[in-house]
């Protein structure tokens, strides 16, 4: 994948965000009056973002126009992106399911799924790990940290 194209799109998006921060007064609510004002620092940052993203965007655009050869850094290797997508899907499902199924029920499935994704096929050991690790974390959190991880709430 050509990173220059992404640079141009990203720069355009950041420039737009910066312009919105610089011109929109509705991004801040309430607060007391000070000499500096609540939006001074965010606007100062927006100016710098405008400059740096503009620099990156223009450099990449010029290189795109000149059709210069891609350097190693400018080529994004997309190998393995399918696995990354699956990993994020597992993680999102975990986030959605754990408040209902509970940490102890949801976690073994997640461990098994990620281990499978990474090429693990030693099911006995992975199975034991998927049971022991959640129990240890749950027990450690509740006993020592006084943090109570989500529990089953479907009944």
């Amino acid at each position: 994948m050509n990173r220059r194209k992404i640079d141009v799109i990203l720069s355009a998006a950041l420039i737009t965000v910066s312009l919105i921060i610089l011109t929109n007064d509705k991004l801040v609510e309430g607060g007391m009056e000070t000499e500096l004002g609540s939006m001074f620092v965010p606007r100062l940052i927006a100016v710098f973002i405008l400059i740096f993203s503009g620099t990156i965007g223009i450099q990449s655009l010029v290189k795109l126009k000149k059709r210069e050869k891609l350097t190693i850094h400018e080529h994004i290797n997309t190998t393995g992106f399918g696995g990354v997508g699956i990993y994020f899907s597992i993680f999102i499902l975990y986030w959605l399911a754990s408040p209902h199924l509970g940490f102890l029920v949801a976690t073994p499935f997640v461990i098994l799924a990620i281990a499978y994704l990474l090429g693990g096929r030693n099911w006995i050991l992975i199975g034991i790990m998927s049971v022991i690790v959640p129990i240890l974390i749950y027990y450690g959190c509740s006993q020592y940290l006084r943090v109570f991880l989500p529990t089953w709430s479907l009944s």
Binding site: F103, I111, I114, Y116, L118, G120, S130
Partner: peptide, 13 residues
């Protein structure tokens, strides 16, 4: 495949 599932769970917790 033993390490990274655990890292994910630790990150969650």
């Amino acid at each position: 495949y033993y390490i990274f599932p655990c890292v994910t769970i630790f990150a969650f917790a």
